[in-house]
Nucleic acid binder design. Structure first.
Length: 597
RNA sequence: GGUCUCGUAGCUCAGUUGGAUAGAGCAACAGCCUUCUAAGCUGUGGGUCGAAGGUUCGAAUCCUUCCGGGAUCACCA
């Protein structure tokens, strides 16, 4: 596949040298796509070149334009407007571009090979004390999509999940269950395991608050009450037992975690998310302790009189960071150290990406520094794909106020809405219930994923669950619908016995057809850009633009009704390829396409 | 308070390494289905790009200050 910008830049460099006898750096040549209001395909900005030409923008543009036109046979004409040299390409050129794309398998995707760099992407990373919510949804969609985009850029990507399955928060759920459940199970309660366990976590919190306020009524301060809470003591005691390997505690722990996992599995499945490898904190935190103890021996880490192990980061403008508590138990950082070392030993990655919210920016900065100080040569291979929070119209989600949007509920609501909309439009008659449900699911998930992913990952975003999500306009279903339209045309073409539509020769296309080819051509650059920025929004915005452009074409141009056989073949091919790119682009977002909707 | 981050139409968001008259969708209004799926297309209205300076041929974009929101600075994860 030829790279248009590269050819133009090279030719422009030649032009400057031959016209003005100056060699300039390629960065001075600015090529961009011509904006819609002007005529042309690509535009050269001439301002930066005036230093070389020592002439006014008009003259310079004209001279360079003339040179380019003579140098490159695919330039049909050019015009200059206020220092912008707009260049148009011949119709044959665009036809050739399209043909090249049609003949390329997996256009836009780079192949993996032995030399591919390996990237381990960690995402999802739930705690096992409560079900997944809207925040996790953004994380999961981002992690999945970023992984797919990196694969498309030729990286060897491994998706991992780190489950935080131990700690005081799990003990709280366990304690509440032991106290109040009377041996009940999710099966008996007829509930998803993660929701079931989450209820006991909430129950603990309620009981704890009750106890605190009772103690405060007896005259204690809030802090005294917290220190004297029997419930909290019990939970802490349970954690200690867990760390010592107490069989009974471990048994309850394993049972409840298994309930949660089966719940998570269901949610992951409905989201269309999976992993190549799952790490459990309970299996890596000891490794972290070991690493910290070694650091103490080499003198990089220090110990306080009370036994606390910490690292002094004041030279980096940060504080001291504790890595082991005085009682020897580990903290979050300890655990992450263990996990990443394990992970490096498992995969020898060239990079590992943490898909984690931006509230942990500081944590990951520290993690890299600690690894560096402990002399891990790969400490600079960690990157943090930091994303913004999802807020509700009323503000932050707060579990205490019950404003958390549950992942399962949300997906269920989306599917319901998709079903209602489809029934209203009445387009799925003749399908079995099973087929219909599959279509509703694809549309619902498509709407949700597109809505979340089209927003720049690093920005905070607002999500309004009440207005649910639109299925019109800049949405997943709009793009899916465009795909379905194309499928419908191809099906009809087949019915009409048109099978050789890939055979077409040069034809005079309209502006809209050329524009569509240009958009398709941009897919390859878009994948590269999304990869280097690690940003699925780039793909989402691209595919929306492509779909919009196709709908304009679809509306303005007859396809199957075109009489001229050659033109008809060309248009069917154009539609076909657009459909393939839409499907591929959506797949990078984790969105499936229905064949009808 | 220190550090980081965001502020673009009524709402939700785009806007490339600084480039042309700042764009979409939703909502509002007006058109388009006996013709390839109207979850579509076309049009109208809607802006002091938070504010003020600066850098330059040129600033939503870079710098400074200020205003406003958020995050973080835990022996929580």
């Amino acid at each position: 596949m030829i790279i248009i910008e590269e050819i133009l830049i090279n030719s422009a460099l030649k032009a400057i040298e031959s016209l003005y006898g100056e060699k300039i750096s390629p960065e001075k040549i600015q090529i961009q796509r011509t904006r819609k209001e002007f005529s042309g395909d690509y535009t050269l900005v001439v301002f930066p070149l005036l230093v070389a030409s020592k002439k006014n923008p008009e003259q310079t543009g004209n001279e360079i334009g003339e040179f380019l036109k003579n140098d490159l046979n695919f330039i049909s004409e050019y015009n200059i407007f206020k220092g912008f040299l707009n260049i148009s390409f011949t119709e044959i050129f665009w036809i050739d571009i399209l043909r090249g794309i049609i003949e390329t398998n997996n256009f836009g995707f780079k192949k993996q090979d032995e030399k591919s760099k390996r990237i381990v992407v960690e995402y999802s990373s739930p705690n096992t004390n409560k079900p997944l919510h809207l925040g996790h949804i953004r994380n999961n969609f981002l992690g999945w999509s970023a992984s797919e985009i990196l694969k498309a850029n030729g990286f060897d990507v491994i998706k991992v999940n780190l489950i935080n399955d131990r700690g005081i928060h799990i003990c709280k759920s366990m304690l509440a269950w032991e106290m109040f459940a009377n041996g009940e199970t999710p099966q008996i309660a007829n509930m998803k395991g993660d929701h079931y366990v989450g209820n006991y976590y909430v129950m603990f919190d309620k009981e704890y608050k009750k106890e605190i306020s009772e103690l405060m009524n007896k005259g204690m301060s809030e802090k005294e009450a917290a220190d004297n809470s029997e419930l909290m003591k019990k939970a802490q005691n349970m954690l200690k037992k867990w760390e010592r390997g107490n069989e009974k505690v471990r048994e309850v722990w394993k049972m409840m975690n298994d309930w949660v996992y089966s719940g998570f599995d269901e949610t992951y499945k409905s989201m269309g998310i999976n992993f190549d490898k799952i790490y459990y904190e309970s299996e890596t935190y000891l490794k972290g302790k070991e690493i910290v103890m070694n650091g103490l021996l080499t003198g990089e880490l220090k110990q306080k009189p009370d036994g606390t192990v910490y690292i002094d980061l004041t030279e980096y403008g940060m504080d001291e960071k504790v890595l082991l508590r005085a009682d020897g138990t580990s903290v979050y950082m300890t655990q992450d150290l263990g996990t990443v070392v394990d992970r490096y030993n498992d995969y020898q990655f060239d990079e590992t990406i943490y898909v984690v919210g931006n509230e942990q920016d500081y944590h990951f900065k520290v993690l890299s520094i600690v690894l560096d100080r402990l002399e891990y040569s790969w400490s600079n291979k960690l990157t943090h794909l930091s994303y913004g929070m999802v807020e509700l119209p009323e503000g932050k989600m707060k579990s205490r106020e019950g404003t958390v949007v549950d992942a399962d509920d949300l997906i269920f609501e989306m599917i319901k809405t998709a079903k209602e909309t489809a029934e209203e439009l009445g387009k799925l008659e003749g399908f079995s219930e099973e087929e219909k449900n599959e279509i509703y699911r694809k549309i619902a998930l498509g709407a949700l994923k597109f809505f979340i992913l089209k927003v720049d990952a690093k920005k905070n975003m607002t999500f309004n669950p009440k207005e649910s999500i639109d299925f019109n306009g800049n949405t997943g279903p709009f793009v899916q619908y465009t795909y379905v339209r194309i499928k419908s045309i191809l099906l009809k073409a087949k019915e009409l016995g048109i099978v050789d539509y890939k055979e077409f020769h040069n034809t005079k296309q309209s502006e809209i057809e050329n524009s569509l080819i240009k958009n398709i051509y941009l897919f390859a650059e878009t994948i590269a850009e999304a990869g280097s920025k690690r940003n699925p929004a780039v793909i989402a915005n691209y595919v929306y633009e492509l779909a919009k452009e196709f709908n304009r074409f679809y509306h303005e141009m007859p396809i199957l009704k075109e009489d001229d056989r050659n033109i008809k073949n060309f248009r069917i091919s154009l539609a076909d390829k657009t459909g393939i790119v839409i499907k591929d682009a959506l797949s990078l977002l984790g969105i499936e396409v229905p064949e009808r909707m």
